[in-house]
Simulated assay, not measured.
Amino acid sequence: MAPTKTSKSSSATTKPKKEKIFHPQSRKADQLVRKSIRKEKLVGQSTDRKQKNSILADFYGFFYHSLPPEGTLSLDELHNLIANVWLTRFDEELEAERSSRRKGRPKSTKEQKLEELKLRESEQYRTGFEVIDLTHAPTVALFRTWDQKQVAFIDLLRFIKITSTNPQSVVVVKPGKHITIVGAGGGDSNLSKTTTKDAETEGEKDVEMGVDTASSGVSTPSILAEPLERFASTIMTMDEPIS
């Protein structure tokens, strides 16, 4: 029997395809450059978006883990949570940096960043701190169903603005979009009085609410009795990581 003819392998017969080289000033070369720049830009935007969403998820996660086992927070408890837990979360780290610095030595980059962050957030709280309305029962009930990942879900909730200079003043800056919140209005909030404020914020009317000032003392919320370790996974900065 005559031997069969063996076919050569494709790798041996097929020569590697040469990459086309275009003149640097040609139209095709210009198109390739623009395509490459656009691709890099899209990748950069995607990375920034993911990083921003991660930071926001951590920020809202702090308040998610601060929810009481049942019910809502009072306005005093919400102020105490921001002033005594959120704004002081880096105090021990900042003090450690100051203590380790020898006399006459300049501040470390980390110490400077921590001081700038604390100053910026304190000023934000003084002029108006936007936060999920944890005094509003329908908002809290919906917030409890959050998966702690999807930042878009947070847009369904009601947001208020509170200040350290006027603790009794509350302004609704985002009334909430979910049907359980829209239908409930402001009646289920711990805030006792509601008045309409003649102002526009991003096309929506703000609602300013005062609280009953019969109680002169500020109660210490049960959340502040909790160890800080409870918030270890969520106490993070809204800015880039501090190193």
Rank of each mutant, 00 (worst) to 15 (best):
A2W: 04
T4W: 06
T4E: 15
K5H: 09
T6S: 14
S7V: 13
A12V: 12
T13E: 07
T14I: 06
T14A: 03
K17W: 00
K18H: 14
K18D: 12
K20T: 10
K28C: 00
K28E: 14
A29G: 03
A29V: 01
Q31E: 13
L32C: 01
K35R: 09
R38E: 12
E40N: 07
Q45V: 07
Q45W: 07
S46F: 00
D48C: 04
D48S: 12
D48K: 12
K50M: 03
N53C: 02
N53P: 01
D58V: 05
Y60F: 12
G61K: 01
G61P: 00
F62Y: 10
F62P: 03
F62S: 06
Y64K: 11
P68T: 05
P68D: 04
E70S: 11
E70H: 07
E77A: 10
H79L: 04
N80C: 09
N80E: 08
N84Q: 13
W86E: 05
R89H: 07
R89T: 02
F90S: 15
E93I: 08
L94G: 03
L94P: 01
A96R: 12
R98T: 08
S100T: 10
R101L: 10
R105Q: 14
S108G: 15
T109C: 05
E115V: 13
K118V: 10
L119I: 12
R120S: 14
E121H: 10
Q124K: 15
Y125K: 11
T127E: 15
F129K: 02
F129V: 04
E130I: 07
V131D: 05
D133N: 15
A137D: 09
P138T: 09
L142K: 14
R144P: 02
W146S: 04
D147S: 06
K149W: 04
K149T: 12
K149E: 13
F153H: 11
L156D: 11
L157H: 06
K161T: 06
T163D: 07
S164F: 03
S164Q: 07
T165K: 15
T165H: 10
Q168K: 05
S169K: 15
P175V: 01
G176Y: 06
G176S: 08
K177H: 07
H178C: 06
T180R: 12
I181L: 08
V182F: 01
G185N: 09
G186P: 01
S189A: 08
N190C: 00
K193L: 02
T195K: 06
T196M: 06
K197F: 09
D198E: 15
D206P: 08
E208F: 01
M209S: 03
G210A: 04
V211D: 00
D212N: 01
A214H: 03
S215D: 10
S215C: 06
G217D: 10
S219H: 11
T220W: 01
P221N: 02
S222P: 09
I223C: 02
L224T: 07
A225G: 10
E226M: 10
L228A: 14
L228N: 11
E229I: 05
R230I: 11
S233V: 06
T234S: 14
T234Q: 09
T234V: 13
M236Y: 11
P241M: 03
